[in-house]
Amino acid sequence: MLLPLQQLFVTRLVITPMTIDKDTIPRIARLARLEIAPERQSALSEELASILSWVEQLNALDTSAVEPLASVTGHDLPLRDDIVTDGNDPDAVLSNAPEKTSNFFVVPKVVE
């Protein structure tokens, strides 16, 4: 299902529409730890393809002489001094943990 704005751009596509093969949706869902029912996968595949196609339009522009834009604020990366100013509060850190013991987070066993 597309939002009206996206639909507008999709209809004005100047580039071959992207396609997403049927294995991609389950693979990226697994990487993102999302559970997606099989019956929803083909619809999602079409939606993602149209979003990608929409972004693909940018390829029509020649940006070879343009510096990548990292930020629009014009600020530089702020730096911090090497001084310990934080930590030493395990109770706060663990306060939302579903399970904890002797100040450790406790999770289902993930052994490698």
């Binding site: 399970e99 013991t101 450790f104 987070f105 406790v106 999770v107 066993k109 993930v110 052994v111």
Partner: peptide, 12 residues
């Protein structure tokens, strides 16, 4: 991984 039969303990 060796502190509990079914759980892992995490220290950050």
């Amino acid at each position: 991984h060796d502190q509990h039969p079914t759980k892992s303990f995490i220290d950050l």
